[in-house]
Design a protein around this nucleic acid. Structure first.
Lengths: 342, 342
DNA sequence: ATGAAAGCGCTAACAG
DNA sequence: CTGTTAGCGCTTTCAT
């Protein structure tokens, strides 16, 4: 038994009205007699009619779909963000489609250049490999909101956390504990690695303020921001003989990896080495010791990203794309847990 | 400066050919003179033409979009699955849109009943709250693939792991270590909680085989499968005076929560209490001690789900929806780590 | 308050 | 190998 394709026309016929009237009912217009409305609604239910979105989209020139482009969905920070973005979008009647860039410059560029043109109305992008120049040179004019530090002056909104200030705060916390040899894990050579650069700056600034010497042997570069990178970085640091008494890791995954290496080798945390991360992912709250970390307001990040994007999408319809780029700073907190206070 | 809406017609005019020819080029048809092709391609680049997907979809009756419905994106198991599904779908030219059901029956039903009708061509659903009856009563006939144990005989494919056998294997592993008081964390009252029911069955079967008494005080129910639930369940177990010498947790998050509680209270793992989880999420590989777990082949789950779905979508076009429901069993392994072998 | 008809951009017959 | 044309299902003037 094959379900029949049912359209507005069929509903109209059954209800004995015109297509326009059915459309009005479906779209909740006001000027419809209650009687007519009831009749139409009955017909809709009877036929199990569902509007064809493709047709509606074609007609209206929009789809109600936005894309969220993140490096990878199973990086907890982005998974948490994605959950919040999807939830907020839903509240606003928007559907979210996910693009995974793998932090590859090519994929990020593809996404930014709108390879989903005509399918999405807007884009939330977490650029990792794209340089400010790349972004400034963007041709596509689909509304876009960028997540992460501001790196670009084009007509795109940014939702940012003050990475320098947050990294400084994390490092000062370690210094205040009396730690003198504070290492940093998470430096990246890559020119595009904005947040790495900024967190490093905050770390160095804090050392200066605390009157501690900046020892480059305590700054460990990583390839990626995964647990494995943190574990390897920590191992390299220990192997080099540069045992620190504290480590600021540029994200929680690095910190969890580093923690693993430390415990594996019999170092006590925070006894011998104190540890701070960045992101406040749930893992850190259940690690042993629990992880001190910088906690950005993810709810705000996701909510604002969707709101800004929706606003820009609306504006675009009315007045082209001539809207000032806005930058919104989101609050963060230092959450002190056992890895610095056990 | 407003970008002009450019369509096939414009490209055709510029290239001096008909729309059909442009369409042929765009869709990579064979019968096009190289010369013509080049000319058309030049025009496309010149105008920065992008096909309007809504129009194409409307015409073809499909969208190339599939939905992945999971309880929540930041549950690591589902995040890992989502990453793999999105990646595999992309390989097949499909776009994935995410629905978060929050394991709510209402939301799951909405998704299964096709509230995205005409927007998606197919659906991959991980049902948590839906009962077999709910699913059997499904009206919508969008192709669907179910993830998890088979609970339903309708025309939907299933990608499953043998929960009973896997749980049995995990429990037998603990018994083989000489543990006698093996607890289980993760029972659920909910009638819809298939995998909980099955894992519990496997656990009990293993106890019987190992000649161990089944003590219901060692079976701890939970509300959800999050870290917090595991932590609380373990606390309740310890508080009840029923200290076990091993615990089989029905997923890794429960195990990580339980681990936290054990360490917090000074119990050694695996010394006093050995621990096994289920899912093999990355967290478990970096916990201290690292977590022994059942590792389902997630790559296979995601890949097969997409493949089965794509196959069913193709078949539907050809021959309606008359295809046997298929059930595919995916392999799993017991991965022994420190939490049972330290 | 409702109806009639045009057309969004594309693909697929059907011609040639 | 390429051109012409008819809709896909919907919203939206413009009438009534």
């Amino acid at each position: 038994m094959e379900r029949v394709r049912v359209g507005l026309k069929d509903v109209a016929r059954l209800a004995g009205v015109s297509v326009k009237t059915v459309s009005n009912v479906v779209n909740g217009y006001v000027h419809v007699t209650p009687a007519t409305r009831t009749r139409v609604e009955a017909a809709i239910k009877e036929l199990d009619y569902r509007p064809n979105l493709s047709a509606r989209n074609l007609r209206q020139g929009r789809t109600g779909i936005i894309a969220l482009a993140v490096p990878e969905l199973d990086i907890p920070y982005f998974a948490e963000l994605a959950r919040l973005v999807v939830a907020r979008a839903e509240e606003r009647g928007l559907t979210v489609l996910i693009d995974q860039t793998g932090a590859s410059k090519e994929r990020e560029q593809l996404v930014a250049e709108g390879f989903r043109a005509h399918l999405i109305d807007g884009l939330i992008l977490s650029p990792l490999a794209l340089t400010p120049e790349d972004l400034a040179a963007r041709m596509d004019n689909t509304p876009m909101v960028l997540l992460g530090e501001r790196v670009y002056e084009g007509p795109a909104d940014h939702v940012v956390v003050d990475n320098v200030a947050a990294a400084r705060k994390a490092t000062l916390h370690l210094a205040a504990l009396g730690r003198r040899r504070i290492a940093a894990i998470g430096a990246q050579d890559d020119a595009a690695a904005e947040s790495s650069r900024l967190r490093l700056a905050g770390y160095r600034q804090a050392l200066r303020e605390a009157g501690l010497p900046a020892d480059d042997r305590l700054v460990v570069p990583v390839r990626d921001y995964h647990r494995a990178d943190g574990a390897h970085a920590m191992a390299r640091l220990l192997d080099s003989g540069q045992t620190p008494d504290a480590v600021f890791c540029f994200n929680d995954l690095l910190a969890l990896g580093a923690l693993r290496t430390l415990l594996e080798r019999g170092h006590s945390v925070p006894g011998e080495v104190a540890l701070v991360g960045f992101d406040d992912i749930e893992d850190g709250r259940y690690a042993t010791p629990t992880l001190t970390t910088i906690s950005p307001d993810k709810q705000a990040i996701a909510g604002l990203a969707v709101d800004l994007l929706a606003d820009r999408m609306a504006k675009r319809v009315v007045q082209g794309s001539r809207v000032e780029a806005r930058e919104i700073r989101v609050p963060y907190r230092l959450v002190i847990r056992e890895s610095t206070s056990g």
